[in-house]
Nucleic acid binder design. Sequence first.
DNA 1: CACATTTGACCTCC
DNA 2: GGAGGTCAAATGTG
Length: 327
Amino acid sequence: MEKAMDWEQSMLLSELTQGRELTNLLRKHLHSSSSLETRQVLVEKILSSYEKALSILNCSGFMVETQPKGSTVGSPASIAYSSHGSDASDEKHTFKKRKTCSGWSEQKRVCSGTSLEGPLDDGYCWRKYGQKDILGSNFPRGYYRCTHRYSQGCLAAKQVQRSNEDPTIFEVKYRGRHTCNQATHFEKGDHSGQKQQLEEKQKQSKETGLKVKTEDLDHRDDIFPSFCFPIESGEVENGLSVKSQMENDMAFVSPAASDSNYFSVSPFQTGRFGLGQNVQTSESGLTEIISAPTSVTNSPVVDLGIASLEKLEFDPSFMFDYSEFFS
DNA sequence: CACATTTGACCTCC
DNA sequence: GGAGGTCAAATGTG
């Protein structure tokens, strides 16, 4: 676990260092005759670095003291893990779990149709890291994190648990947001590989009837607004059903049971991350965080462009045509 | 062989 | 002390 902690720290360090270098670069550009565009690009990159750093701090369990306590503000000492109590874990087992920062930000209920298996696929690559029987629940809860956690520093995680009342419904909670490449292909227009995937998955999904239902669309989640999939209330063809939930959350649908047969909705960012403000500093350069499901192992992906996303988000009358994916 | 999943152990929090 | 969350060794899979 110390390993994980070191990794998070190095990620944080890396992002902050990058931010500093970019800022220096920007300063140079301010004194040169470089274009406004170049400077804007730099600004976006800098912001992205900070966003990522903050994401690490907020989601992975660092405790950031917003109020200065003593004189160590700004120093590494002001960043501490939320390991509570005496630090007995400093011994052999430096186990520093950060339950206080769980911050599960989203809860969705996903109807799995006829299937009784999980976990649900949302277009991202998830890796299961645990399962737990939950008191009062008939079904165990599965814990997943992004496959690219260590390779790309993506901190997104989710919990999946089948509902007691209706075993065909999965309750999914999300934490963190995707900063991995699969979250960026989408807006980069890099859809070539996905289309094939999509087609295959569409074929797979054909057999499953789907119906969509949703109510509360007032969804705005700065932390992990995945599955923003504003669809008009009411039923949509194919019998796919989405039950929305109380917590301002969009519901999405998974008609199938297996890992590879899900209908999935592209997660994308809304709010301040949504429309090109949050830029990610992946090796590919500027990319927005409107995520792109490029799951290799998974489901059909609703491949919408940004314009479509905006429409989805802001045009309440917009109807998503599912038939495209199941015909 | 590399990567994903399973599962018991261990941690923190309440 | 119990519950929930995570780790990591063992195991499975392609």
